[in-house]
Computed example of a mutant assay.
Amino acid sequence: MNKILAKPQVDYQRAKAKFEEKSQVMQKRIEETRVLREITQEVMEELVQETGFHDAFNALTIAENELISWSHTTIKREKTYLDNKDSFDRMYQNLDSNPQARATIIDLAMRIR
């Protein structure tokens, strides 16, 4: 039986899949363009817009933020959270400055049932 996911979890999965798809398209376009000309900042900016990579990145960031917010609210009734409240709260406070903490929280948020 499949796990039933909350809306923020589903939205995150969709945004992540779309970002990964656009990332592959972007990588292919970079390789194709590199054969024809030098990849300058201007060329890279054109490719980012042309492939939809920028929009996919923004959508993923929004989905991550919603997932993180939802998870913080959801875990507050869990015994593990209550036993380690200070540690969890510090991790949530450092999400913007600590990419590893952000990745850990996202991973944990996707495991919430």
Rank of each mutant, 00 (worst) to 15 (best):
residue 48 V to P: 05
residue 2 N to R: 11
residue 31 E to P: 04
residue 58 N to L: 14
residue 104 T to R: 13
residue 94 N to E: 12
residue 10 V to Y: 08
residue 65 N to A: 06
residue 104 T to H: 12
residue 56 A to V: 08
residue 103 A to P: 01
residue 113 R to F: 06
residue 17 A to N: 09
residue 97 S to I: 04
residue 87 S to N: 08
residue 29 R to V: 07
residue 50 E to H: 03
residue 13 Q to I: 14
residue 27 Q to Y: 02
residue 94 N to M: 07
residue 109 A to R: 05
residue 47 L to G: 03
residue 22 K to C: 15
residue 16 K to M: 10
residue 103 A to E: 11
residue 69 S to A: 08
residue 4 I to V: 14
residue 71 S to H: 05
residue 103 A to M: 06
residue 27 Q to P: 01
residue 32 E to V: 09
residue 106 I to S: 13
residue 78 E to H: 07
residue 69 S to F: 05
residue 37 R to P: 11
residue 33 T to R: 11
residue 28 K to N: 06
residue 58 N to D: 10
residue 40 T to K: 05
residue 12 Y to F: 15
residue 2 N to V: 11
residue 87 S to A: 06
residue 76 K to V: 01
residue 104 T to E: 12
residue 99 P to F: 05
residue 15 A to N: 14
residue 73 T to Y: 01
residue 55 D to C: 00
residue 72 H to D: 02
residue 44 M to R: 10
residue 15 A to M: 11
residue 68 I to K: 06
residue 29 R to H: 09
residue 30 I to S: 00
residue 34 R to E: 08
residue 84 N to C: 03
residue 2 N to P: 15
residue 3 K to H: 14
residue 107 D to S: 15
residue 88 F to V: 01
residue 87 S to F: 09
residue 95 L to R: 04
residue 79 K to R: 09
residue 38 E to H: 08
residue 94 N to C: 02
residue 105 I to F: 10
residue 46 E to L: 09
residue 8 P to C: 11
residue 33 T to A: 03
residue 32 E to R: 10
residue 57 F to M: 14
residue 72 H to R: 14
residue 86 D to G: 02
residue 29 R to N: 03
residue 103 A to W: 02
residue 61 T to H: 08
residue 81 Y to N: 07
residue 52 G to Y: 03
residue 84 N to M: 03
residue 67 L to C: 07
residue 14 R to C: 10
residue 12 Y to S: 06
residue 35 V to G: 00
residue 12 Y to T: 09
residue 16 K to Y: 04
residue 33 T to L: 02
residue 56 A to N: 04
residue 92 Y to E: 06
residue 97 S to K: 06
residue 104 T to M: 15
residue 104 T to C: 06
residue 58 N to R: 12
residue 85 K to P: 07
residue 49 Q to P: 01
residue 89 D to K: 04
residue 7 K to V: 12
residue 23 S to E: 15
residue 60 L to P: 09
residue 1 M to A: 14
residue 112 I to M: 10
residue 73 T to L: 01
residue 2 N to Q: 10
residue 93 Q to M: 04
residue 89 D to V: 08
residue 23 S to L: 15
residue 72 H to K: 14
residue 1 M to L: 11
residue 32 E to N: 08
residue 77 R to H: 09
residue 86 D to Y: 04
residue 103 A to V: 00
residue 19 F to L: 13
residue 109 A to I: 08
residue 9 Q to W: 06
residue 89 D to E: 15
residue 30 I to C: 03
residue 56 A to Q: 07
residue 85 K to G: 02
residue 71 S to W: 00
residue 53 F to I: 03
residue 4 I to Q: 12
residue 9 Q to A: 08
residue 49 Q to K: 14
residue 91 M to P: 08
residue 109 A to W: 08
residue 67 L to S: 07
residue 19 F to P: 04
residue 49 Q to F: 10
residue 18 K to A: 10
residue 94 N to W: 00
residue 64 E to D: 13
residue 60 L to M: 13
residue 31 E to M: 12
residue 26 M to F: 15
residue 39 I to N: 06
residue 39 I to S: 07
residue 37 R to Y: 03
residue 106 I to T: 14
residue 33 T to P: 07
residue 63 A to D: 08
residue 89 D to W: 04
residue 40 T to G: 11
